[in-house]
């Protein structure tokens, strides 16, 4: 059981990283979008392993169901998807390696050298607890986030509509 669980865990890790690599390196946007779906799904699975049941559910609902759909719409609306433009290339790829290596090395050393203090608590359902936190300690942030969401929605609509009429 332990072994199986571990095996599945590693499978999800590989899925997440691998699909992320596809997202980044695939020359076709639409492929990247679908690869992102798997990445997000993998992350949601990792959340489960981290005992964040509600968050995993939210990840699937919001990201996969909402944001990813939105991105796909964006792809359809902007790039001529139907023409399957393969000229959609990356640029400054070798240049970009420098900061990646620098930051990566820094992060790796941070992760490996920091003496982490680990305290693992028992796995429990988190939904009720999160709900209480959001409506008590994080009430202001929660309300601010909801206002942000609302204004972002209205703003996005306004931005999209404005130029359309002007055209």
């Amino acid at each position: 059981m332990q072994l199986l669980s571990e095996l599945i865990f590693w499978c999800f890790v590989v899925l997440t990283v691998g699909s992320a690599i596809v997202v980044v390196f695939h020359s076709r946007v639409i492929y990247s979008v679908f690869a992102l779906l798997f990445t997000l799904f993998g992350v949601a699975a990792l959340y489960v392993y981290l005992a964040a049941d509600f968050l995993a559910a939210s990840q699937l609902l919001i990201y996969v169901g909402g944001i990813l759909t939105l991105i796909i719409f964006g792809v359809f609306l902007t790039s001529k998807v139907m023409s399957l433009n393969i000229a959609e290339q990356s640029h400054q790829r070798w240049l970009a390696v420098i900061p990646i290596v620098l930051v990566g090395a820094g992060l790796l050393m941070l992760i490996l050298t920091t003496p982490w203090e680990i305290k693992i608590s028992a796995v429990r359902p988190t939904t009720q607890e999160l709900g209480q936190l959001l409506l008590t300690d994080y009430l202001v942030s929660f309300e601010a986030a909801s206002i942000l969401l609302l204004s972002a929605l209205i703003g996005a609509m306004r931005l999209a509509r404005f130029f359309r009429t002007e055209d």
Binding site: I62, Y63, G66, I67, L70, I71, F73, G74, L77, T78, A145, L148, L149, A152, L153, G155, A156, M157, L159, A160, F163
Partner: peptide, 15 residues
């Protein structure tokens, strides 16, 4: 939540 808002606004800008 912020990612959702960001995606919505970003896509509007891209358009």
């Amino acid at each position: 939540i912020i990612a959702a808002a960001e995606a919505a606004v970003a896509l509007a800008i891209f358009l």
